[in-house]
Simulated scan of single mutants.
Amino acid sequence: MKYFSSILLFVTLISCYSVERNCTDFQTGSFYSEISIDGKLYKSDFVRTKDLQIEIYNNKIDSSQVRWINDCEVVFKTINPKSMAEQKDIHLKILTTTDSTYTFEYSYVGETTKQKGIATKIK
Rank of each mutant, 00 (worst) to 15 (best):
D99I: 11
N80A: 09
T112S: 09
K88W: 08
S36K: 08
I94K: 01
S36Q: 15
T101F: 12
C16T: 08
Y32P: 02
V75W: 00
D51V: 08
Y42I: 03
T103N: 13
L8E: 06
I118M: 10
S83Y: 06
K114Y: 05
K82P: 08
N22V: 07
S100E: 13
I118H: 10
E105P: 00
K43H: 01
E111V: 01
K88H: 14
Y106V: 00
I94C: 08
I7C: 13
A119K: 04
E55G: 13
D51S: 15
L9E: 10
I94A: 06
K40Y: 04
K82S: 14
T113D: 11
T78D: 14
F76M: 00
T12I: 05
M84A: 13
R67A: 12
T96Q: 13
V19E: 00
E86P: 12
I90Q: 01
D99K: 15
K82W: 03
Y57I: 03
Q65W: 07
D51L: 07
L41V: 08
Q87S: 15
R67C: 11
K50V: 15
A119W: 00
S33N: 12
L8K: 02
F4D: 07
L41M: 05
T112G: 02
S63N: 11
K40W: 01
G39H: 02
E73K: 05
L8R: 03
R48I: 01
S5A: 13
F10V: 10
F26L: 10
S30K: 14
I61M: 10
S64I: 02
C72K: 01
L8M: 10
Y3P: 03
Y108W: 11
D51W: 03
V109Y: 01
F4S: 12
I7R: 04
Q115W: 07
F104P: 00
R48V: 00
Y57T: 06
D71R: 10
D62Q: 11
F104Y: 09
Q27N: 12
Y106K: 00
I7H: 08
T24G: 12
V11D: 01
L92Q: 03
I37Y: 10
I61D: 05
Q115F: 11
Y17I: 08
T24L: 14
D89T: 04
K93L: 06
S100K: 11
P81Y: 00
G39I: 01
I54M: 14
Q87D: 13
T113R: 08
K77F: 02
Y57G: 06
I61A: 07
R21T: 11
V66F: 04
K40H: 04
S15G: 09
C23P: 08
Q65C: 06
W68L: 07
S5G: 04
S30P: 01
M84Q: 12
T28S: 11
Y108V: 06
R48C: 07
M1R: 08
S63T: 14
